[in-house]
Write a protein that binds this DNA or RNA. Structure first.
Lengths: 141, 141
DNA sequence: AAATAGTCTAGAATGATTCTAGACTATTGA
DNA sequence: TCAATAGTCTAGAATCATTCTAGACTATTT
């Protein structure tokens, strides 16, 4: 579970993304990626960082998440107005969204298929297809 | 184009939704629905209302949009963190999202199909499946 | 027409996110 | 090795969308 040369690997990922491997970025990267596939908000990650004794400002967490997203290390998922999740799984897949709790859960890409997609409007190309399956618990509805 | 008894029809829709047909609600309803299928933000609708000489507060626009959504007259579409669109088309359909301009365009429901959807997690039922096809212009990218 | 229940409003409050300006740090190259 | 530089970090202010509040107003009921 624990990578043999954890920092070397993380440093390499950052370098390839054109980002200097700073203490903050390294720590945030490992916090996000050492736990498998995750969906975190900036606030959540900030709280985790503080709990792990890393001193980082919330602004840096936001900057870092945006930089990682731009570099393709993360994918941003928008499900509710006013809240962004960052997904450590950047491969082709979709999501269940629990309306009651506001939580996300991956749907493996292979399971779900989108077909008969009409051609994109003239002059544009498809950059991504997002499928959100909103589910509710019959009880708290 | 102009309905024969515009207000009577609008009043009826509101009554059926359990909402009193007030001046503000009637005007906002007609502003939204008299132009065919539309995707508007609260700010946009507020600006339109003011331009049409209707004095409404932004708070009322938000309240009204939320009430209409709860009543099933509108559908809320979230594509970008921090911005909600309200869609006057509540029938089964999906959207193209222009990343460059932030605009939405309907994809008729019949065109696109989602298949092999895994069963929803235990204890939940699917309330809606949203498909967002994000497109970009090769130029401004 | 009076009582009531519901609605509207301006402005304050909230919550997420971005900006700012100065302090700090990784990288470069002599 | 060390200064120059370019990039990064931070706390707090600023911004933006949205919701809340409390009092004034209005549709409905009696």
């Amino acid at each position: 579970m624990i990578p043999a040369r954890p920092y070397a690997f993380a440093i390499d990922r950052l370098r390839k993304a054109g980002l200097r491997p700073t203490r903050q970025r390294l720590a945030l990267l490992r916090l996000m990626f050492d736990g498998g596939d995750r969906h975190v908000t900036a606030e959540q990650l900030h709280a985790e960082a503080l709990a792990a004794k890393l001193r980082v400002s919330l602004a840096t967490v936001y900057n870092t998440l945006n930089q990682f997203t731009a570099a393709g290390l993360l994918r941003e998922v928008v499900v509710e107005a006013g809240r962004s999740y960052f997904d450590t799984n950047t491969s082709d897949h979709h999501h269940f969204f629990f309306e009651a709790s506001g939580r996300l859960q991956d749907i493996p890409g292979a399971d779900l298929k989108v077909s008969d997609l009409p051609p994109p409007p003239a002059g544009t190309t498809v950059s991504r297809v997002d499928v959100i399956v909103r589910v509710k618990s019959p009880d708290n509805n």
